[in-house]
Design a protein around this nucleic acid. Structure first.
Length: 429
RNA sequence: GGAGAUGUGGCUGAGUGGUUGAAGGCACCGGUUUCGAAAACCGGCAUGUGGGUAACUGCAUCAGAGGUUCGAAUCCUCUCAUCUCCGCCA
């Protein structure tokens, strides 16, 4: 969330930003609620102050005065109770509204009200030319006997999958390889809880339990399935103060990710591209505020190295205002070439890297102690995908297929997967 | 899942109804001393939030939420977490 004082001092800017980012938020309502809350709190504090005064006077008072004081305090207690209730209702509403105001946008974030506003800033590789009719990954999955969507639909519904045989090795290999790279870049490796409390989810800027929510919530209690390990990692550091010299804190988390994909359909939801559950290695950094821009480039560089080493053609997009999501101040996506998209192939998202500045850390309450002044300030947080397994696997399968249906495993991955290629086979189990 | 114990500031650790926002110690910061360092000594040192140009000051916070009381870190209730024992289990 944004700092309310910043909002008050920069009303026009925040209003404009909220509008440009097409966010469903009402800045003026937030300000109004804040003012109401402040007034209410002030009168609450006045009553509390009086109770404290009465208690101090009581000891020294004589009996008749004591009776008076008792009576006054009893009345005050009632007032305080009422005021507290009112404050807590207002506070809830205020938070609810304030959380919807998106982060500020970096100066170079493109305008744009849809994905057409995203600007390609870099291209790598060239899309493969096939001298045969390429199969999409769903067809390949069948031919190679490495995926089963029908069986998954039978037990859970659409947008689920079984991975089989070499695809299992490929998933594990991709994770292992991504972790290796993360480790090399100084990230602490983690597996995380995949079920977390709702308040941790909203602190990271996601919305649990709403009609448009991307999050699966458990019906009992206040727990939900994580949509990304970013949520768990953010929570890992919640309510803590880190010494300045410990920054940056770099964590790579691997987890399953669960998404309802509410409201998404269409051609690109085919096969592995848009699924309800997938594995992902996520990079997360807690950094000094002056270092976040630099760290953002580092994140992108790591992601690019990963896809370059797999030799997958991709492009990098600088995301426009409407496509940033609430927490990001600036965001890159990498889109890999996927032959199944459109009629002749297209780019599909495989990673994103966001600089969230202090938007998440304010709510998560992650601060650092300045070495010289001793003051506490909010850290900046960044997150980026190291590998989203299903989409990367999809890209490898489709881009690396041969005329006979054989798929070549990228060389750098072979030691982690344990095989050089996946060949078509006729196997029932 | 059952039984018991515990839960105080960055850490440690006092504190069972009234200047306790909280002793002491460690760590940390500043100073004296030293060629420098260590040691010793002196001083400082919780967070959030409101008011005030400022000096300063109000309120809240001793796991969390309620309650009793003129007054709660201290008493009561519930919740959560940790530890120990038992059960179950990968």
């Amino acid at each position: 969330m944004l700092d309310i004082r910043f909002i008050l001092n920069n009303l026009d800017l925040v209003r404009r930003n909220t509008q440009e980012r097409c966010a469903d938020a009402n800045v003026d309502k937030v300000v109004g609620l804040y003012e109401q809350l402040k007034i209410k709190k002030m009168s609450l504090e006045t009553s509390q102050q009086r109770v404290n005064q009465v208690a101090k006077q009581f000891e020294k008072a004589d009996d008749p005065t004591r009776d008076q004081l008792k009576e006054e305090s009893t009345i005050l207690r009632e007032t305080i109770k009422t005021l507290k209730d009112e404050v807590s209702i207002l506070e809830k509403e205020y938070h609810h509204e304030a959380l919807r105001i998106p982060n500020l946008s970096a100066f170079d974030v493109p305008q744009g009200s849809d994905e057409g506003g995203n600007i390609p800033v870099k291209f790598f590789g060239t899309p493969p030319k096939f001298n045969f009719k390429p199969l999409d990954h769903v067809e390949l999955g069948k031919k190679l006997d490495i995926m089963d969507f029908e069986a998954a639909a039978k037990i859970t519904g659409s947008k689920f999958y079984f991975l089989k045989n070499e695809a299992v090795l490929l998933e594990m290999g991709l994770i292992r390889y991504a972790m290796e790279i993360a480790n090399r870049h100084g990230f602490t490796l983690m597996t995380t809880p995949e079920i977390v409390r709702d308040d941790i989810i909203s602190a990271s800027g996601f919305t649990p339990r709403g009609p448009a929510s991307q999050i699966y919530s458990l019906s009992e209690g206040d727990l939900s399935l994580i949509g990304t390990s970013e949520i768990a990692i953010g929570g890992y550091m919640a309510n803590s103060v880190v010494p300045e010299e410990h920054l940056p804190i770099k964590i790579a988390g691997v987890s399953h990710c669960f998404r309802t994909e509410a409201g998404s359909a269409g051609r690109e939801s085919k096969g592995l591209y848009r699924v309800h559950q997938f594995s992902k290695v996520e990079l997360y950094q807690f950094v000094h505020p002056t270092k976040s821009a630099e760290a953002h480039e580092e994140m992108l560089a790591i992601e690019e190295d990963f896809y370059q080493s797999l030799n997958l053609p991709y492009r990098v997009l600088l995301m426009c205002k409407s496509d940033l999501g609430a927490p990001a101040y600036r965001k890159y996506d990498i889109e890999a070439w996927m032959p199944f998209i459109g009629d002749n192939g297209g780019y599909g998202e495989v990673t994103s890297a966001s600089n969230c500045t202090d938007f998440q850390s304010r709510r998560l309450n992650v601060r650092f102690k300045d070495k010289t002044t001793g003051k506490l300030s909010l850290v900046h947080t960044l997150n980026g995908t190291a590998v989203a397994v299903t989409r990367t696997m999809l890209a490898i399968l489709e881009n690396n297929q041969q005329a006979d249906g054989t798929v070549l495993i990228p060389e750098v991955l072979q030691q982690y997967v344990g095989i050089q290629s996946i060949k078509p086979k006729n196997r029932k189990f």
